[in-house]
């Protein structure tokens, strides 16, 4: 589906200097600074896969997305999507992809959503029959029936995002790029969007590339993540594997009968949360969780035990720190 090999891109940003002399010089010849956006980025994506593309701001995420959607031409490297090079066969390529930029709308602001859809149908030259089928299905799944006659400007952000999703799927693309699709949405809308993407991937088999800062999106949608930092791919693999490798910390929270004294355990950090409640931070690389629980149940009369893994955010922060980005 997607084969990206050794993709590199450097921007030349005009150097901004102060002073009158420099400004006049700039009129004649502009000095530029080379900024390396991505370097030697390679990855493959199989049909029907869902991939989370994550990294801090300015890491090169949007550069990669722009190259893959044919907006930008890389300096070197190859990119083949559905057998085509995006920037060489732009028109043919973009027919097969859908793009949602979470921060920008593709709908016409002042007219009902339906009109935008109709215009998109003409832009993508979708045959009437299949358009009707797709539109009906999308309307049903995304619950758009009431929204279609409303002008976009009076939609809420969550409603608008649902319409955006539908708008970029009207031509039934095989590949969907979602750039921060849940940004700014409330909890309910986020759930609805995630639910929809999951169904789309499962039922239509659409390949989805998702960039986001919300790790819950990743957790809810995909197992495979691509982590990019400073223009390099730092990690490519499953979320599970990432957990196994880096996520060794568990917290064990215990409720016990008041009056008892919780034991101090070797290699385990303990913090009291109040009378009858204590939390242990266990690094499973050193001590086994089962051993800790066994010790505790031996020494205390336990009322409740909960074992929590780290939130994914913390994991990613650790990864960032490890790679110094």
């Amino acid at each position: 589906m997607i084969r990206v090999e050794n993709l590199s891109k450097t921007y030349h940003v005009p150097k901004r200097s102060t002073g009158v002399k420099a400004a006049f010089k700039a009129l004649v010849k502009r000095e530029t600074v080379a900024v390396e956006a991505i370097r030697d980025v390679s990855f493959h994506v199989a049909p029907g896969e869902m991939v989370g593309y994550i990294g801090p701001n300015g890491a090169g995420k949007s550069t990669t997305i722009k190259i893959m959607s044919g907006i930008l031409v890389p300096d070197s490297g190859t990119c083949e999507i559905l057998g085509r090079t995006p920037w060489k066969e732009r028109m043919a390529h973009v027919k097969d992809i859908g793009v949602v930029f979470g921060q920008r709308s593709q709908l016409w602001w002042d007219v009902p959503v339906q009109d935008s859809f109709d215009l998109l149908r003409d832009i993508y030259r979708v045959p009437a029959e299949s358009y009707r089928k797709t539109a009906d299905r999308l309307t049903e799944i995304l619950d758009l029936a009431d929204l279609l006659t409303t002008p976009v400007r009076s939609l809420s952000l969550g409603q608008r995002m649902r319409c955006e999703l539908a708008a970029s799927l009207l031509h039934s693309p095989k590949l969907l790029f979602l750039d921060e699709p849940t940004i700014g949405l409330d909890a309910v809308s986020k759930l609805a969007v995630r639910q929809f993407i999951r169904e789309l991937n499962r039922e239509a088999g659409t390949t989805v590339i998702l960039t986001t800062h919300d790790m819950n999106d990743i957790e809810a949608l995909t197992n495979r993540i691509l982590l990019i930092g400073k223009g390099h791919i730092l990690y490519d693999g499953g979320l599970d594997h990432l957990r196994e490798q880096y996520d060794t910390v568990r917290t064990v929270t215990v409720d016990y009968r008041e009056g008892q004294i919780p034991p101090v355990l070797d290699g385990v950090e303990m913090s009291r949360l109040g009378e009858g409640r204590v939390r242990y931070r266990v690094d499973t690389a050193i001590v086994k969780v089962s051993g800790v629980v066994a010790r505790l149940s031996a020494e205390l009369e336990l009322k409740d035990v909960t074992i929590d893994a780290q939130p994914v955010e913390e994991l990613i922060v650790r990864l960032y720190r490890e790679h110094r980005i």
Partner: peptide, 13 residues
């Protein structure tokens, strides 16, 4: 400046 041109480039026209 509003990023509309990117949108134009991802459409098959």
């Amino acid at each position: 400046s509003q990023g509309e041109f990117d949108r134009i480039l991802v459409r098959p026209r």
